[in-house]
């Protein structure tokens, strides 16, 4: 996961929004024109890669706060359905496995890019996106199932915290899929090459981060909290 500083990096230091689409990779000019030479950076790290890392740090606090809300409200729901009533660990284990596989595909996509394996790029980018899509499909199925069993945002605190946390995670995955598909489209124009590998790498960083967040969510909401049966389960803190 960790990327060593690339000293011989020719990627123009182009401004890009943290979650932006991959940009046009064809020009050879750095936009910031900041200092000595176009791709001079003080640390030797690429601006965009650093931006992504810092952004992910920020996003950690976002998910951290959502997870904290969930943990604080564990077992505090006044009415059912409670997690034990509806959480289906086997099904979500499958979707978690799918998402983990997508991370593998992402690694393959980056490796293909670095090797200029144009066919591999297309296959693996699409595979990552499709696996992500399957994960979202599972989530939609699960949300529907829960809704039919009476769990809504307003039903109880479990519903509110569960849907908010997993919903925002799903939104992150969806954004990642859009990004992947955009890269995939660009790959048909030959715009995904070793010299633009950073575009894929940034997407990969984001994708792996979203995956890791899911592992945490899966552990806490399903493996740990999935058996909570009601307010009494934690011995009633109040």
């Amino acid at each position: 996961m960790a990327h060593a500083p690339e000293t011989a990096h020719h990627e123009p230091a182009h401004p890009a929004h943290g979650e932006a689409q991959p940009r046009h990779g064809g020009t050879g000019h750095g936009e910031h024109s900041g200092s000595v030479g176009h791709d001079y950076t003080t640390t030797g790290l690429n601006h965009r890669k650093m931006l992504m890392w810092v952004f992910l740090g920020s996003d950690c606090l976002f998910f951290g706060s959502l997870i904290a809300t969930y943990m604080v409200y564990r077992g505090q729901s006044l009415t059912g359905p409670y997690p034990a009533d509806i959480i289906d660990i086997p099904i979500t284990t499958i979707s978690t496995f799918v998402l983990l596989c997508s991370s593998f595909a992402m690694v393959q996509a980056l490796s293909a890019t670095n090797n200029n394996d144009q066919r591999g790029i297309k296959i693996w980018l699409l595979a990552t996106a499709i696996l992500g899509g399957i994960f979202i499909g599972f989530q939609v199925y699960e949300f529907n199932l829960f809704k039919n069993e009476g769990l809504t945002l307003g039903q109880n605190l479990f519903g509110a915290t569960f849907f908010t946390l997993t919903g925002f995670h799903g939104a992150h995955v969806t954004l990642g899929i859009i990004w992947l598909v955009s890269l995939w489209i660009l790959s048909f124009k030959g715009r995904i090459r070793p010299d633009t590998a950073l575009d894929v790498e940034l997407c990969g960083l984001y994708w792996h981060f979203v995956d890791i967040v899911w592992i945490v969510i899966f552990t806490l909401l399903y493996l740990v909290g999935g058996f909570d049966a009601g307010p009494a389960i934690l011995g009633g803190e109040h």
């Binding site: 809504t152 307003g154 509110a160």
Partner: peptide, 28 residues
């Protein structure tokens, strides 16, 4: 991001019927 989460939860309480901070639904 921390206040963002708080604000999102507040907006959801006010518009989508959640009870993050509303004692009537068990919120704190």
């Amino acid at each position: 991001p921390v206040i963002t989460v708080g604000l999102i939860e507040l907006v959801m309480d006010r518009n989508f019927g959640t009870h993050f901070f509303n004692p009537t639904g068990g919120g704190d």
